[in-house]
Amino acid sequence: MTHRKGKEGAFLFLAPALLILAGITLYPLLHVFRLSLHRRLLIFDISRFVGPENYLYLLGDTRFRNALGNTIYFTVLSVLLELLFGLAIALLLNRHFRGKGLMRTIILIPWAIPTVVSARMWEWLYNPDFGLLNHLLGFRINWLGSPFLALNAAVAMDVWKTTPFVALLLTAGLQTIPRDLYGAARIDGAGPWTLFRKITLPLLMPVILVVLLFRTLDAFRVFDAVYVLTGGGPANSTETLSIYAYKILFQTLQFGYGSAISVMVFLCVGLFTLLFIPLLRRRKV
């Protein structure tokens, strides 16, 4: 009886969230799936069902493979660095000192600037002629001009921009670790490194994993930051899957194929999530 009541109550708590998600995001998702099974070229007045044809074509598409490689590189490197920096900042701020509120506001600045503006700002900073970066370094590097540097420059920008996201959530996570745990361990003679390894890290791990999951999902779908910075160039060396999908969808109006690329993005992050969930489960205990 009480159990039943609890269940119904639970559903009431859940309902608004499910309704909003179903109403707003379900239709677009189904639409993209459906389109990806079509050959839809408006300019040739073609629109017909072709089944998995688009996906088969993807297999042999070297540009797709290139974009996938770029995306994975971008995601792995930027998420790792963000996690590292974010954790360091969160640990640094997890103590009492004067001006803490100000400090926590300052670390939010990169996240607070609109992406479109900050990407342009970095384009300006990277400019070899009048950019601040080379001026401070004292020598000239064509940051966005070489394929290798350009992708890493995009990573650097993203790390700067999104570290606050990580730092903020980890700071919140640290706040919920009871202080007395540390006190007890200190009495037992544990040093700072042991404290970190035995208490902070395990208790923070669930938040870290959630952050890692969301950052990976976002980084894998990165679009406007990199698109404004480099346009995918030079020579497609910074073209991510989202940029490729964008070009196919909106520059060449191949809605079917562009949707198929988008579904691949979905499948990639979906696969990642499925592999990742057991980690979350294990930590929950």
Binding site: N127, D129, N142, G145, G233
Partner: peptide, 21 residues
């Protein structure tokens, strides 16, 4: 032509030319 034109759109070139460079 400087190597950084491979990262330039209209505006950076316009600024440089407009600055007498």
């Amino acid at each position: 032509t400087p190597d950084f034109v491979t990262t330039a759109t209209e505006e950076p070139t316009r600024h440089l030319f407009g600055g007498g460079r």
